[in-house]
């Protein structure tokens, strides 16, 4: 397996110093080149899981192996795209994409590589613009180009289109699908949108909340582009909804009983 998550647990200390379990016994195997979505209601720990894979957050127990190496800290083999583009406002688009390349290659080479990926996200004409001059969707495309530019085997995406409007999001779905088909990256895509996960991924990991566990693992075996298979997509959506319904009911009843016990 290319990415292997074994018996992963994560606990945080809450404000009374009591440990709260955010992720419980997560086991997940991902093959090279797979597009996997991690889907769940807010608070299920899906972003924390991705952050642990990125090496930005430490797990309480268990381990993650990516391409034969145990994850201990962040590394260039795992590119990350956040919900906010997180571009550096003091440098222009080209320099932002060149940021991860500065140390490992000559300037001309880095520039050529950065331009290549900016063209892939169709922003070849915006090299000298500064982040504040771009729309939210364009900023996010620069962020994707920046993550791709260091040529990671794995791309980690934490609700990358969550802050964008519907039309922009739909357009970026198409672009991301094309990029994935072209580069053959392994993608871990965190989202709370069921339709987004069905549209994009090979597999959907549905997570439950309190504590965060893997509820089910759904294979999406539909040809791409998937817009022509509305009915099959709808069937999968209903299936996922049934899983999530229980979770949402659980959250609601927990909140109500908490309210009553006060």
């Amino acid at each position: 397996m290319f990415v292997s998550i074994n018996q992963l647990n994560k606990q945080f200390l809450d404000k009374d110093e009591k440990p709260t379990t955010v992720l419980k016994d997560i086991d997940l195997q991902i093959e090279k080149g797979e597009f996997v979505s991690i889907l769940g209601p807010s608070g299920c720990g899906k972003s924390t899981l991705l952050s642990i894979v990125a090496g930005l957050t430490e797990a309480t127990s268990g381990d993650i192996i990516v391409d034969g190496t145990t994850v201990k800290k962040p590394g260039k083999d795992r590119g990350m795209v956040f919900q906010q583009a997180a571009l550096f406002p003091w440098i222009n688009v080209l320099e932002n994409v060149m940021f991860p390349l500065k140390k490992e290659m000559a300037k001309e080479e880095a520039e050529a590589q950065a331009k290549k990926y900016l063209q892939m996200v169709q922003l070849g004409n915006y090299l000298n613009h500064y982040p504040h001059e771009l729309s939210g969707g364009m900023q996010q495309r620069v962020a994707i180009a920046r993550a791709l530019a260091m040529n990671p085997e794995t791309l980690l995406m934490d609700e990358p289109f969550g802050a964008l409007d519907e039309q922009t999001r739909t357009r970026l779905h198409g672009q991301l699908e094309d990029i994935w088909l072209e580069t053959k990256k392994t993608i871990l895509f965190v989202t709370h949108s069921i339709s987004e996960s069905i549209k994009l991924s090979d597999r959907i990991i549905v997570m439950g909340t309190r504590p965060g566990i893997v509820l089910t693992d759904i294979k999406v075996d539909l040809p791409r582009p998937r817009d022509q298979h509305k009915e099959e997509m709808l069937a999968i959506e209903e299936k996922i909804m049934r899983y999530l319904k229980k979770e949402i009911d659980k959250v609601v009843s927990e909140e109500l009983s908490h309210e009553a016990s006060r």
Binding site: G55, L56, G75, G79, M80, F82, F88, P100, K102, L156
Partner: peptide, 27 residues
């Protein structure tokens, strides 16, 4: 913290992180 996390995923740390991210971000 978002800038710092983003830079870390791009392999920047320590003094490199300070010079290329923390310092310009606080200009």
């Amino acid at each position: 913290p978002l800038y710092i996390r983003a830079a870390q995923t791009m392999g920047s740390k320590g003094i490199d992180l300070f010079i290329r991210v923390v310092f310009p971000a606080s200009i």
